[in-house]
Amino acid sequence: MFSRLASDAEMEKRRADEFEPGPASPLKPVDRFGFVKQDQNNSLEAKNRPTNEVEREERRIRKWRKMIGVGGSDWKHYVRRKPHVVRRRIRKGIPDCLRGLVWQLISGSRGLLLMNPGVYEQLVIYETSASELDIIRDISRTFPSHVFFQQRHGPGQRSLYNVLKAYSVYDRDVGYVQGMGFLAGLLLLYMSEEDAFWLLVALLKGAVHAPMEGLYQVGLPLVQQYLFQFEQLVKEHLPKLGQHFSEEMINPSMYASGSDISVTKRFMTPGPPFVWHVLGTGVKIVFQVGLALLTVCQNNLLKLAFEKLIHALRNFPEEALDPEKLLPLAFSIKVFVTYSISF
């Protein structure tokens, strides 16, 4: 499920091909999500997906389509009638091809879009933002290894700039904060600019869920809160490891921050993983996955001292990240966080 976070490589390749490829960028092999492969042999992706998995995926997609209805018309009704079914299916993972639409439905951003016609265009074209230069500087530093965002001034980079600029005008108090690009960039792999913008608004301002703007406000209050809470959870659930972390003076800001797209590699700072906060089952899942990973790797981590420990926490082994094993374990961990919002 996590590895399916990003978009389908085929789609991205097609999208990228519509525009002239830069002369200096020969076609490099990408994984199924559109990221340029670093190491072609040492990856789970290298293996073809077995047929039964493909069939299972197709069955899932059919179920989801029925649940959503045409253009999302049946969604609200279904959620009201069978919330437990919806929750269970979200846990199993939203099929990649429907993710963009479902995220918009869950977050309430569809409603915002419909209620505010022309607003996005106004923000992009007619307003100026104090953060324009800051945004430009980060554009080429956001997912530099993804085909959609690689091309200088290409469609990916242009959309990303527009969404970030629009948001920085829409919410001048928050403005532009580094890290937003990774969130907006992820959304852009699944939907149009305008949809991505309103989803960002829905997430940060809270359309139907609690707002997450504390991730980016001055002082980063929500980041601080999450880091603190995760540290407490580690002590509670994995006391030995918690003790080891204190002795080695390791705290979550050292390993749980970052910009990687994979929730399992870095899970705390205002990067893409926080899409989960609203687009899945609440922030609780982020904590659960973090705890599950630490549980799986505990024996190894306990042996390591400061430097190697940090390295290990930032580079979990591929086998530990296998969602088929990791997720059941994550869901089995009982995490009580009072502020957590549930779907």
Partner: peptide, 13 residues
């Protein structure tokens, strides 16, 4: 030339 912007902190020795 294609490095990502640093979010939070990074470490090396």
């Amino acid at each position: 030339l294609e490095s990502k912007s640093t979010i939070g902190v990074e470490f090396a020795a």
